[in-house]
């Protein structure tokens, strides 16, 4: 355990160094962006001094490191808001969206996968394949705008954008989340459907399924209790991976539905050359990932005693 923590710290340091240097390699001067139309050279100089950007890069890095060790993750150079507050504001938003998307993806993807595996080669199978191919190839932002135009503008069933927390107002949260979650979930559903289908086909060929049928079990029981349960193992792993991707990968959907999420926070910060936010956010993410890995490692050991010596 101690060794794992000992590995985590240098990893963190590397991530910090990487973000710090990479950012400064981007073209464009953050101060020019910040100064906007007030580009008086004297003012620029003073700002550069204030944000310590006239220091050599290693000195700037050490200053940042010192601040982080003191618990100060920095402030947005653009709005003056502390980074911790921004992360705390946006992360729950994206998590809510990601959970809803995964639920929708599972609800569509798994039954469709099972159905097309069981009815392999029938019209139903082909239809499911066409649907999943469309799900994979229709761009998120296009589907999003089309849905807004149809559901919000024409039919006026749902609000066109925004975010309401499920803990504040569950009904409004459902109304604002369902459309973006469907847009995100439809692409994932397609992936899940294809994996479910092939996993099911694999399992259905195995001996114990034949045995189950031979014992005279009902078809539904065999499919859902015996085959699907085993086919699900890789699907669960895949869903967990997809969920991780969603946290950062929901940017386009967040943009279309103007959801103030985590992905949008990073992208906007990069475009505004808001060094403080980019650095702080990446650092928070890295810490979260390292912590999650540590927890996962501990859980594995608890679940599987054979790993303990490793």
């Amino acid at each position: 355990m101690a060794r794992r923590i000992a590995v985590a710290l240098p990893t963190l340091l590397l991530v910090m160094l990487f973000v710090f240097v990479l950012q400064r390699l981007l073209p464009g001067d953050p101060l020019l962006v910040m100064a906007g139309e007030e580009r008086d050279p004297a003012v620029l100089e003073e700002l550069r001094k204030f944000y310590r950007m006239d220091d050599p890069i290693p000195v700037q890095f050490l200053a940042w490191l010192r601040a982080v060790l003191g618990g100060n993750f920095g402030v947005s150079m653009r709005t003056g808001e502390p980074v911790i507050k921004l992360v705390a504001q946006t992360l729950p938003v994206t998590i809510q969206l990601a959970v809803a998307s995964i639920l929708i993806a599972l609800a569509i993807g798994i039954p469709m996968g099972v159905l097309s595996a069981v009815r392999k080669g029938t019209a139903l199978d082909y239809l499911a394949n066409v649907i999943s191919l469309s799900g994979l190839s229709i761009p998120n932002f296009w589907l999003g705008i089309m849905l807004i135009l149809l559901v919000s503008v024409e039919l006026r069933w749902l609000p066109a954008s925004g975010y309401v927390s499920v803990f504040e107002d569950p009904w409004q949260a459902l109304r604002t989340t369902i459309m973006p979650a469907f847009v995100l979930g439809s692409g994932l559903a397609a992936t899940l459907m294809r994996h479910t289908r092939s996993a099911m086909l694999e399992v259905l060929r195995l001996d114990y399924i034949r045995t189950a049928y031979a014992k005279g079990l009902l078809r539904g029981t065999v499919i859902y209790k015996h085959a699907l349960r085993n086919a699900l193992v890789p699907i669960v792993t895949l869903s967990a991976l997809l969920f991780g991707q969603l946290l950062a990968g929901a940017v386009l959907t967040e943009q279309v539905f103007t959801i103030p999420g985590f992905g949008k926070l990073i992208v906007d910060a990069v475009f505004n050359r808001d060094y403080g936010v980019v650095q702080g956010v990446v650092l928070c993410t890295a810490i979260a990932f390292i912590l999650m890995n540590l927890v996962a490692d501990v859980l594995y050991i608890l679940i599987n005693p054979r790993l303990r010596t490793a």
Partner: peptide, 8 residues
């Protein structure tokens, strides 16, 4: 999207 929000 901004216009869609006004319309809806």
């Amino acid at each position: 999207v901004r216009l869609a929000n006004l319309r809806s």
